[in-house]
């Protein structure tokens, strides 16, 4: 049996009204948060920007490094931290030519990033193709998800 009966035309329960307000605020907040996330996903402000993906066995890191001197690329892993270093190829000096536009960035870079799981450091592979660096990092045995078989007794 209902103790309170507030239902009438155009007049909801006060709790319904509070619930409605709460939902409204939550929606407003999540819309705002989504908007910010779309603009700045995991923005760190350190070159190069990276994408990281995984499957059961490995982590895959990619970075766009156009014009990077492959010889200068240096990758190292210490504990859970991967560090990428390198530098770009040089261009003609401003004294030799007249620049109309200069938007590309030249110089050195260094970025460290913490890996989400332990990896087998000795089995890391890296390739540089068409200006994209791909690093494949096999997960350490303890970081892999174990499939547990359920015995049917």
């Amino acid at each position: 049996m209902a103790i309170l009966r507030w239902r009438g035309p155009g007049f909801g329960s006060p709790f319904q009204e509070l619930e409605r307000m709460r939902n409204y605020m939550e929606n407003a907040y999540s819309a705002l948060a989504n908007g910010v996330n779309q603009l700045r996903r995991n923005y760190t402000g350190v070159f190069p920007l990276v994408n990281l993906a995984e499957d059961e066995e490995k982590l895959y890191l990619t970075a766009e490094l156009p014009g990077i001197d492959a010889e200068s690329l240096d990758l190292s892993v210490k504990n859970d931290t991967l560090t990428i270093k390198g530098s770009t190829k040089s261009e003609p000096a401003a004294s030799e030519v007249n620049y109309h536009r200069r938007e590309r960035e030249l110089g050195n870079f260094r970025r460290s990033l913490t890996l989400p799981v332990k990896v087998q450091t000795e089995a890391i592979e890296a390739s540089f193709k068409n200006g994209i660096l791909t690093v494949t990092l096999p997960k350490a045995a303890e970081a892999r998800a174990h499939q547990i078989t359920i015995k049917n007794s």
């Binding site: 923005y43 990276v50 994408n51 499957d55």
Partner: peptide
């Protein structure tokens, strides 16, 4: 588009 789960997407 390989079967991978994205963990971090900066670009």
């Amino acid at each position: 588009v390989p079967e991978r789960r994205s963990l971090r997407r900066e670009y």
